[in-house]
Structures are given as structure tokens and as C-alpha cells.
Simulated scan of single mutants.
Amino acid sequence: MSGIFGRLRTIGRRTTAADSGEPSRQAALKERKRTYNLFEAAAVYVAACAVDDQERIDEAAAWVSPEALSFGVNELACRAVVALARERDESPQEVARTLLGLPAA
């Protein structure tokens, strides 16, 4: 997960650079009439990060603002930890620490 949050910090810089350097991508984004939900963007972004699909990461990052994407990723992480905690009959804190490879508190 640390890779996801590290990428979130660079979205604003990368999006700005991509918009100014890629006219074809900019045109494609303007032509797209669909409005993306921030949770949809977060789901695509996290799934793409999990398989290191940089093209899909960049695409999802362009759908919403960096702040909205960060909020969506945080919400997804919270929901995932709660779901795993219920499934494992553990506390959310135990699950989060396990997923991050941290010792028990």
C-alpha cells in the first residue's frame, strides 16, 4: 500500500506534466463525455497500482482531482480493512498492522 500513497503525492505534478506534454491525451480526455465517480476512480487506481499498470494508474488519476482521489483511496482502504477484519474475526487495527507487516501492538 505504501506505493499507492507515494504515487498519490506525485499525481498533481504528473497530471500537470502530462497535460502540457501530450496533446493527444488531452484531446482524448476532452472528448470523453463520461463523468467519473471518485470511488470508481479510486477503485481503478488501486487495482492498477496492485498490478503496476502505469497507463491505467495515469488514466484513473486524470478522472478526478488529486484530493478526491486521495479521499477515495482512503475510503477504499478503510472499507477493505473492515471487511477483512470481519472475515478474519480480528480487529481492524490487527488487520491493518498485519497488511503493513508491522508487529502486533
Rank of each mutant, 00 (worst) to 15 (best):
S2F: 01
G3I: 00
G6S: 01
R9G: 09
G12K: 03
R14V: 14
R14D: 15
T15C: 05
T16H: 00
A17R: 01
A17F: 00
A18W: 15
S20Y: 13
S20V: 15
S20F: 14
G21V: 09
G21H: 07
E22P: 05
S24M: 13
Q26N: 15
A28H: 06
L29C: 03
E31V: 14
R32G: 12
R34L: 14
T35Q: 11
T35A: 11
N37W: 08
A47Q: 10
A48H: 10
D53Q: 12
R56I: 11
I57R: 10
A60Q: 01
A60P: 06
A61T: 08
A61N: 10
A62G: 13
A62C: 14
W63V: 07
V64N: 11
P66S: 06
E67I: 05
L69F: 07
S70K: 09
S70D: 04
S70A: 07
F71T: 13
V73Q: 01
A77K: 05
A77R: 07
A80R: 04
V81Y: 06
E87A: 02
R88G: 01
R88S: 07
D89W: 02
E90A: 06
P92S: 04
P92H: 02
E94L: 10
E94N: 10
E94Y: 08
V95M: 04
R97Y: 04
L99W: 10
L99T: 04
L100F: 14
L100V: 13
A104Y: 07
